[in-house]
Nucleic acid binder design. Structure first.
Lengths: 120, 120
DNA sequence: CCGTTAATTCGCCAATGAACGAAGTATATC
DNA sequence: GATATACTTCGTTCATTGGCGAATTAACGG
């Protein structure tokens, strides 16, 4: 019960929902999600913590960067289904489409993908 | 976007999640849900309003009684999938199983089903 | 070692949400 | 019409949440 409620509450915030959708296209570090959402670092850090507590995202640390990705196929069914639901339900949202465009440029900040923008 | 967030927030409360699960077995009137959840009428009324606003339940008025049922198969896909997710994810929860047992007796209060309890 | 960048933690504030009881509405029944 | 039952609305209280900035920790680069 607790997990289902935690997942539902995590999804029920626009900023977190947008972050989840943004991770469709691969992992992002916190500073990129900050650029995307245009919120303060502390706020975004908290949001990603909520998503991680719910099991919706996983994190990986590489040097100064903390990368986040969607929970993978080995995650619990309740998590996988929740992710499937939110991705399918929001993929055509104007805000989400706008975020996808913006992400192209935001990714320039990723040290591993310098100047890969404007290719799409 | 708004609808997805409204649905997620509606599900993210234990009392409302339990109410949704309770409606698996058919419609219930508000007073039965009050008996089940053991919360004040005003609180339960508000909860059911939230569920209805989210499109997760539909209501029907018959005399003094207000009956609620899960949104049917004609509801929007986003709603149907959310209901499917929460029903499948919570059906084995101890609280939910306990509620199902309790519901047998609670249904006695339904004027249309007098003394149908203890049949299971 | 010092400065910079990435992220977290902490304390604060405003807004939201869940709970209640009291009062009001609606619909039976006496 | 009076009374009882079912439900809603309103106002209040208390806890949670989302937002921020300041201070702190962690890791790299001169």
């Amino acid at each position: 019960m607790r997990q289902v409620l935690t997942i539902a509450k995590a999804i029920g915030d626009e900023s977190r929902a947008r972050a989840l959708l943004a991770l469709r296209s691969g992992e992002l570090c916190l500073c990129q999600i900050i650029d995307l959402l245009e919120l303060s670092p502390s706020t975004v850090s908290k949001h990603m913590d909520v998503l991680q507590q719910a099991g919706l995202v996983e994190r990986r640390k590489e040097g100064r960067w903390h990368y986040f990705r969607l929970a993978n196929h080995q995650a619990a069914p309740v998590v996988r289904r929740a992710i499937k639901w939110v991705l399918e339900s929001l993929q055509d949202e104007p805000v989400v489409i706008g975020d996808a465009k913006k992400l192209c440029c935001v990714r320039r900040k990723d040290p591993r993908e310098l100047s890969v923008c404007y290719k799409g």
